[in-house]
Computed example of a mutant assay.
Amino acid sequence: MTRPAELRCMLMRGGTSKGAYFLAEDLPTEPALRDALLLRVMGGPDERQIDGLGGAHPLTSKVAVVSPSSDPAADVDYLFLQVAVGKPEVSDRQNCGNILAGVGPFAVERGLVPAGEERTSVRIRMVNTGDLATATFPTPGARVDYTGDAEISGVPGTAAAVVIEFPAGAGRLLPTGSPRDMIDGIPVTCVDNGMPTVLMAAASVQVTGYETPKDLEEDLTLADRLRAIRLKAGHLMGLGDVSDTTVPKLTLLAPPRHGGAVTTRTFIPVRCHTSIGVLGAASVAAGLRIEGGVGAALARLPTAGDRIRLEHPTGFLDIDSSLTTDPDGLPVARRTAVVRTARKIFDGTVFPRPAETAPTPAHSPGGPR
């Protein structure tokens, strides 16, 4: 397939992220050609992304590639690609649960899944990891309706609720086999409930956990310490050398201030998230319920029900999370569900920068874990 001078594209906000959504058939099948094209679409590697769709931040430099699924448990496949800001790199080493919120509506918009008369559920296979999710959203009159009264922190106004439910975890919730590990003298809990995440008390790295993302990013001593912890955690979690990847995420925990269960500050992996990712939140919420984990002593968990409110720099995220145990007595996820919203911003044609002006991007291969 030759590189097109123009291609179909839908720009959508998914949760607290924004990305370009494409049908796989509209992109080159060769990963290197596809990534080079997407880098030009988003405006990389310029750190301002001034000549493309990107918004000069990792949360607005994302891509969803959607196609019919051959998996009988799914309707569509969703490949997430993170287009780096400031360097020529495209990575498929992680999922994105916020961009996931737009995949179901996009699949209906593109005719991959027929719309129900009132509501539609789309079963999604996340190609990056092989995990499954089901997104349910309103489709009155068999058309996607993005309007509604659901609010999520970090997004102005209201929109239609997209309920994303994840099946009971089949993998290891505790990749290291322990609820608590020590890395460089810091107690951590390594958890994976859809996103490999390392939990630690903010106080253990000499910060409060209430700082702004900007203040945390400018703390070079903290950055060096977190970088070292993340590299060692990658090996402990069976991820190998993670120096060139964005996982595992690191989440600092502090006691809640606004009625939630815990305050969070999440690094992705160097920038501090202005909120918290959906899949990262799924891992944090599950981690708070693990007996002996670092979050158990900090969190104020509800006395009844599955819902946990995670406070983050721009508000909160509510997530339903419950655990059970496997035959060996190890904790496993029983139920994980979250309410997000999504909105179609434009649907049309994008004109990438000419190929001869763009460097060949580095590709970070991922695939099922």
Rank of each mutant, 00 (worst) to 15 (best):
V85Q: 00
Y78K: 03
L11Y: 08
I186Y: 00
G177I: 10
I229M: 07
L231S: 08
M237A: 11
I268D: 06
R48F: 14
R271N: 14
M10K: 08
P256A: 11
M126N: 05
G157M: 05
F351H: 15
D75N: 01
A254E: 09
K344G: 06
I290W: 03
G295W: 02
L199S: 10
T360R: 04
K62N: 12
A261L: 05
F80I: 03
I276N: 05
P361K: 12
E109W: 15
A5C: 12
G52N: 02
P68Y: 01
I124Q: 04
V85A: 00
V247F: 00
L330M: 12
E165Y: 08
T176G: 10
M200N: 01
T120S: 02
L132P: 01
K62D: 10
V90T: 14
R3N: 08
P248I: 13
V83Y: 03
L236Q: 13
A101W: 03
A74W: 06
V339W: 02
V41L: 04
T134D: 00
A107W: 12
P269S: 10
L231Y: 11
T29G: 14
L239R: 01
S204V: 09
A342M: 02
L301N: 08
G19A: 11
T139H: 04
Y210V: 07
D92S: 15
G104D: 05
V155K: 00
S121G: 04
I124Y: 05
K214L: 14
R227T: 11
R340T: 02
V76K: 03
A115T: 07
F106K: 09
K344A: 15
G52I: 02
M1F: 12
V188C: 11
G260Q: 01
V127H: 09
E117S: 15
R40I: 04
L39P: 13
C272N: 05
R265Q: 11
V205E: 07
A342P: 11
P196E: 09
G238T: 03
V270A: 11
G287Y: 10
